[in-house]
Design a protein around this nucleic acid. Structure first.
Lengths: 175, 175
DNA sequence: TGCAGAATAGCACGACCGTTCGTACACCCA
DNA sequence: TGGGTGTACGAACGGTCGTGCTATTCTGCA
């Protein structure tokens, strides 16, 4: 997304929009923060209404998959895109992406821990490994939905998710 | 990668380089095909030296993970990048990526089938689901390596791979 | 009512993009 | 020897990018 196109879409002039942020990078960071706010609203917030432990974790991940489409983000998940576009493009945008990603992973990890504390998962479960693999399913689902337009993407992800949690000793009652 | 930068890197002039391909898109397609050739050499070819079935499949996937770095591609795997950059950018580049990706998935699927035929995996294994999940591990590994620079990326991927194959009934002897 | 200050617009800039054009050199075959 | 052909070049095009500079318009308070 460029400043000109964004200005056109919002009805503002390029310079008028530009005046608010002082650089293109700052604008992109602001965009990312807005996306994070959307994610909070569409993913985290509703997930928190589920009981602690595995149910909440399941809700969190279930709402995570495909959240960007439901939130109305036409370009897909900006974090996922940035993970592959900004591999080696240092700067504040990359830093912002890294920070948001780290925050999200920490949140996931905390809820894995909670499920673990409540005995909903095997005690010897490697939390970081679980979060890492969840990320893999998310990326596969994202590319499956957006690039391949695979109508089976949702069930593929759901199947993989359940299998992964079963491996970690999830109580089948919650799946 | 832009034509100007590529020309500079190769020592040619922009127009001289451009004369060979007739458009930027054609050049990108040629670049993709060259990458595919590299992948054949660095992944498929050596993997074929392993015995049929699960060993060959394991070799194939093991060589797949991180292949772009070993092949000297500084930008990472171009297919993986394109999956997230060209989501909604129709054209011959996207088509070429889709074709290469489909070809690779078919190859993977065939070798899953072979492992299945030889009884190295459960008979009721869903081949496409397995390939789909392998793709997820690959993407997680790729972003882990390139974006996060996580030194544990390799073992994370290896762990996930083994767990996935065990789930499909892989004979532990081969893992 | 008038005015300070913020918000927005207009405009021009330099840089880079993909692309085209005319041209110069080297080679092969008649 | 001469002309066709392939390969490379420099220069320039129109377009778009991000970004400043300077007006203008709007808004809220004395």
């Amino acid at each position: 997304m460029t400043i000109g196109r964004l200005a056109e879409a919002t009805g503002l002039s390029k310079s008028g929009l530009f005046a608010h942020f002082k650089s293109r990078e700052a604008l992109e960071v602001a965009l990312l923060e807005e996306a994070a706010r959307l994610a909070d609203k569409h993913v985290v917030e509703p997930a928190m209404r589920n009981p602690e432990g595995l149910p909440r974790l399941m809700a969190l991940v279930g709402l995570w998959f495909g959240w960007s489409a439901r939130a109305g983000l036409r370009g897909g998940c900006p974090i996922a895109a940035a993970l592959f576009e900004l591999d080696d493009a240092p700067g504040m945008v990359r830093d912002a992406v890294a920070a948001l990603d780290a925050k999200w992973r920490t949140l996931l990890r905390d809820h894995v821990q909670q499920a673990l504390d409540l005995g909903h998962l095997h005690a010897q479960t490697d939390r970081d490994q679980l979060v890492w693999e969840l990320g893999g399913i998310y990326l596969a689902h994202h590319s499956s939905m957006r690039f391949h337009r695979d109508p089976q993407a949702d069930q593929r992800a759901q199947f993989a998710l359940i299998a992964l949690l079963q491996r970690c000793g999830a109580d089948p009652v919650h799946l």
